[in-house]
Write a protein that binds this DNA or RNA. Structure first.
Lengths: 193, 193
DNA sequence: ACACCACTAGAACGAACGCTCTATCCAATA
DNA sequence: TATTGGATAGAGCGTTCGTTCTAGTGGTGT
């Protein structure tokens, strides 16, 4: 079937790009490596992504966006109290990071930083990802009874602190930053009750 | 004078590397661009840094380390209350980021992320930078009367949240994440009084 | 005056990069 | 069966990369 085939190869390329850029960043990831990892050829890559590496990076960032948004949503669905859900998120991020040999950090951050001021489409996609994640957090905080502006600001800090803690955990190969971040975020949220 | 000359060229190379990698990251920064920006030749670069790009990146990260440590220390010296000093830090980071056209983020983070699992010496230098900054914060928090373990944990979150907020501010070209981070960190610290 | 050496200078190397191009394959339609 | 067009395949383009290498310069110590 053609349609299934199309989806298959395209998806494999996007997924491979996302994982490689998550681990190595944008610049260090080559198109030949992507095509090998995706079990596709260079011709297929340019067939599906005529915009080349840039377009591929945008799709990879969007893939990481959806991935982490689902991770967040799942945590909030699993645990009733939003503060407790965030603690669970931090813990899960820590164990996931450790289990990957400290290699799989945020699938967006490295590419985002490399693109700032140099590749606007990629930067935009990263910005949308962060905004998307904040929206998930803000909605759950509001549902739990917090005021709109409080929830809005907390969503910023929840995402940013998790982001910073994950980066720190990765660089120092330690789960501590994420554990501490979870505890502090829960305390901060609790202070608004 | 030879000594002065040596220090001059070497320092220019390190500073140029630090600024370029701060803006573009490790992979996107070429040695030719560095030598041009530093007004030195490729020969001089390899004379002072026989280890090549890797060694240069380590020195650049250490330079960024010292730079931000001095920035933190100056803020704590200027403002008595540590929580207020951190708010001032966040505000200064935001205005500095805006004034640079949102280009000059953390001088360590991008290079650190690119080096994870691929260049251990660089990763180590970045780890030492974060640890160094945490020590500055922890000491000041302790001096203000907080218990050792509380100050230790808060230092982690202060640095990580500032880091995450600066990244978010840069990507979204907005001062809001840093302003919010400053307020939340002050509130969190205040909750331990 | 001479020898020395830190430093400057940039040409040149092989490798890898993103990307283009042409050729081929194969399933679906007429 | 013939035709069509999406998809695959990879050789090859020009460029740039990090690095090496040799040659040259100029101040310093004897």
């Amino acid at each position: 079937m053609r349609t299934q085939h199309e989806i298959g190869t395209r998806e494999r390329i996007v997924r491979a790009t996302s994982r490689l850029m998550q681990r190595q960043g944008y610049e260090a990831t080559g198109l030949k490596q992507i095509s090998q990892e995706a079990q596709a050829t260079l011709g297929s890559v340019y067939h599906f992504f005529p915009g080349g590496k840039r377009e591929l990076a945008v799709e990879a960032v969007r893939h990481g966006d959806r991935e982490f948004a689902e991770f967040l949503t799942a945590a909030f669905d699993r645990v009733d109290d939003p503060a407790a859900a965030i603690v669970a998120c931090a813990r899960d991020l820590a164990t996931g990071l450790r289990d990957s040999g400290w290699l799989d950090g945020c699938p967006v951050t490295t590419t985002a930083l490399e693109s700032v001021g140099r590749a606007p489409e990629i930067q935009r996609a990263a910005e949308e990802a962060y905004e998307n994640w904040r929206t998930v957090v803000r909605d759950r905080l509001r549902r739990s009874g917090l005021a709109e502006d409080v929830a809005h600001d907390l969503a910023h800090t929840v995402i940013n602190t998790l982001e910073g803690a994950e980066l720190s955990a990765q660089v120092s190969q330690s789960e501590a930053p994420l554990e501490i971040a979870g505890r502090h975020l829960a305390r901060l949220i609790g202070s608004y009750r």
